[in-house]
Amino acid sequence: MKKSMSLLGICIVFTLLLVACSMEERKTAVVNKDIKEPVVYDDEEVIEQVVINEMESFSEVKGSSEKTLTNKEDIKIIQDAFLNANKEPGVADMSDPHYKLLVGDNSYYLWIHESSGTIMNRKDTHVIYSFSEEAAQGVYKLLDSIYGENNNDQ
Results as ranks from 00 to 15, higher is better:
residue 3 K to I: 13
residue 10 I to Q: 09
residue 11 C to K: 09
residue 15 T to Y: 11
residue 22 S to A: 09
residue 23 M to N: 10
residue 26 R to C: 05
residue 26 R to A: 04
residue 28 T to S: 14
residue 30 V to L: 14
residue 31 V to N: 01
residue 32 N to D: 06
residue 32 N to T: 11
residue 32 N to I: 04
residue 33 K to N: 12
residue 35 I to P: 04
residue 40 V to P: 05
residue 42 D to C: 03
residue 51 V to L: 09
residue 52 I to S: 03
residue 55 M to L: 08
residue 55 M to S: 07
residue 59 S to Q: 12
residue 60 E to P: 06
residue 70 T to D: 05
residue 73 E to H: 05
residue 74 D to K: 04
residue 75 I to G: 04
residue 85 A to T: 03
residue 85 A to N: 04
residue 88 E to F: 02
residue 90 G to Y: 02
residue 91 V to I: 14
residue 91 V to G: 02
residue 93 D to G: 01
residue 93 D to Y: 04
residue 94 M to T: 07
residue 94 M to G: 01
residue 99 Y to C: 03
residue 101 L to A: 00
residue 102 L to K: 14
residue 103 V to P: 07
residue 104 G to I: 00
residue 105 D to N: 12
residue 105 D to Y: 09
residue 105 D to R: 11
residue 111 W to Q: 01
residue 112 I to W: 01
residue 113 H to P: 05
residue 116 S to G: 05
residue 116 S to D: 11
residue 119 I to H: 02
residue 120 M to S: 02
residue 130 S to G: 07
residue 131 F to T: 00
residue 132 S to E: 02
residue 133 E to D: 12
residue 133 E to A: 08
residue 136 A to G: 04
residue 139 V to W: 05
residue 140 Y to W: 15
residue 140 Y to P: 08
residue 144 D to G: 10
residue 149 E to S: 07
residue 150 N to H: 13
residue 150 N to T: 06
residue 153 D to I: 11
